[in-house]
Design a protein around this nucleic acid. Structure first.
Lengths: 212, 212
DNA sequence: AAAAGTAATGAACAGTGTTAACTTTTTAAA
DNA sequence: TTTAAAAAGTTAACACTGTTCATTACTTTT
């Protein structure tokens, strides 16, 4: 069945080329500026062809969403080696923030935009947000490990993990949306957003440290 | 000049009616479903008439954005009376979260969407995000008041305030975007988002408390 | 060679924000 | 009161959007 195989490979290839084109447009011009027609022009196919490979536009951005989570998990990989649970937790936070700053559009797609989540709800097999689950599970396990060595005494690890995620996500979300920038210009008359986030994270780290 | 005045009042009236129609559509159907044409149909005017009162669509949503901040400040008003700075700080956080849960669309408009911020950048008088400034200043002053009675020793109030805002914003943002819902269904097999946020906030409050 | 199946497309639908040119209404001056 | 100017509002159009349907071009199977 070598012919059949080649055909399948060709199909998969076009699927990938569509996604690559979509990613390119998305990362250079943003979501709203990424239209089906522009993607089609990029790969030199008719717009309707895209619908043979992806259900609709949300299907495409959901594919990018999944890809983003793979990249994030790759970023997290080296942290597994960090011995100290608390150092690992802090590194996790810093890594998460760095990801948001280096891939703001991807971050927005993964953690801010509603469309991919709506896609999940509609095409529901109920339990399908594996990527997100794995990432949160890593955080959760790290929190539990911290408890083993005396941190977060008397606190529910689920709530601790949730609070930690919300904190760093809050910083990143304010950054990618431009709210941090506007706020800092007005309130602090400064432009060093990265420094501000760095310092805010240090405060958070102090809080966590003091639970020991 | 009574006639001139009446005319001005009439113009202001139509401006308001446009905004009311926009708000109604926005709150019932969301931003994307709120088109200029639909707003026009709602107030029974031609679509182009709207452009005589608002520069463009972003101008309208920026007006809603400002209105939202007025509502938020009204919600904060009673908290001024809270004597204890730390109690005030906690009440501020709870109040902020309650606002996000009761007006999720408005919250999204005010703190998540990029468009109003972009509108600010384009129509720049540089320093024009008064509403946001006032709200953050209130938080900042409360943090300083807390320091006066022994909290946050050795910490920069700016960074403490930033961290606090990021934390609660993170919770709210994950709620309004649907990420919290998906995550909880997958990881905790639960639907009680409000309870989760409540508990996460309690953890944060514990952190803050422990700085005394 | 004819039939069946697949891949790709052109044309169209119903909608979007926005602008230019035109018409109607209102105001002010002669 | 008539007339000219200014303001308010509308129609038609442009250049887009996501998406669907009928049709063509090509490949494989019978």
């Amino acid at each position: 069945m070598g012919i059949q195989e080649r055909k399948t490979r060709h199909k998969e290839d076009l699927r990938k080329r569509i996604l690559e084109a979509a990613k390119k447009l998305f990362l250079t011009a943003g979501y709203d500026a990424t239209s089906i027609r522009k993607i089609a022009k990029e790969i030199e196919f008719s717009p309707t062809t895209i619908y043979l490979y992806y259900k609709d536009k949300r299907d495409i951005i959901y594919a990018l969403h999944r890809e983003g989570f793979q990249v994030l998990r790759q970023n997290f990989q080296p942290l597994m080696q960090v011995e100290s649970p608390f150092e690992r937790l802090k590194a996790l936070g810093r890594c998460y923030i760095r990801f948001a700053f280096t891939h703001p559009d991807l971050y927005e797609l993964m953690f801010v935009m509603k469309d991919p989540m709506e896609y999940l709800e509609v095409n529901c097999v109920e339990t399908e947000w594996e990527e997100g689950e794995r990432v949160f599970d890593f955080l959760l396990q790290t929190v539990r490990d911290c408890q083993q060595v005396g941190y977060f005494k008397g606190l529910d690890p689920n709530h601790v993990a949730m609070e930690a995620w919300a904190s760093v996500h809050g910083m990143c979300a304010l950054y990618v949306s431009g709210h941090l920038k506007s706020m800092m210009q007005v309130v602090f008359e400064s432009d060093d957003q990265e420094g501000m986030i760095e310092n805010a994270f240090r405060v958070l780290a102090r809080y966590l440290e003091s639970t020991k």
